[in-house]
Amino acid sequence: MKEVLLILLSATLVNNFVLTRFLGVCPFMGVSQRLETAVGMAMAVTYVLTLTSAATWMLNAYILVPLSAEHLRLMAFIVLIAVVVQMTEILVRHFMPALHRAMGLFLPLITTNCAVLGVTLLNVGEQLGFMAATVQGFGASLGFGLVLIVFAGLRDRLDGCDVPEAFKGTPIALITAGIMAMAFLGFDGMGR
């Protein structure tokens, strides 16, 4: 149990996928304009990431390895992720049309989100067990969601601030993300 908790903590805080490993930064910047879409995106990524971590581990363990087709790993993972993301988009469009329109392009963009592919490849690369892989996926998405929602709160306040003209919008958001990344470095070395 302690070991699972350690993986969760390290995936969420210590080497956070957005602020320490710099994966999935473009949806991080794109969706954090408004808090509602950020929460929607965080939930969608959590759903997709946990599902794909489990699915890709099984795909790798029961299909690719026995058929010794590891070299297909990258393509197979991408197809699987695309299927799961498309499924999510259909569900979101059906149940929450406003959220679907608000997230717009960024929902299908999760397929190409480097964090998703990164986690799945990492799980397989580090020979993690099934349980550990899923927890790693969940931890990564938790970290992504947490930082995304906090950052959306920040940007919501920043777009009311009297920022100099040249820095309004994305530049000041990048500087804020930079300072947050600096702060996240404080967790360096934890969880060893």
Partner: peptide
Amino acid sequence: LCLSGGLALAWAARKFAG
């Protein structure tokens, strides 16, 4: 992989039309 994915999506798209 592609076939099963495609079938699943087609079914879902019809069932949950927006």
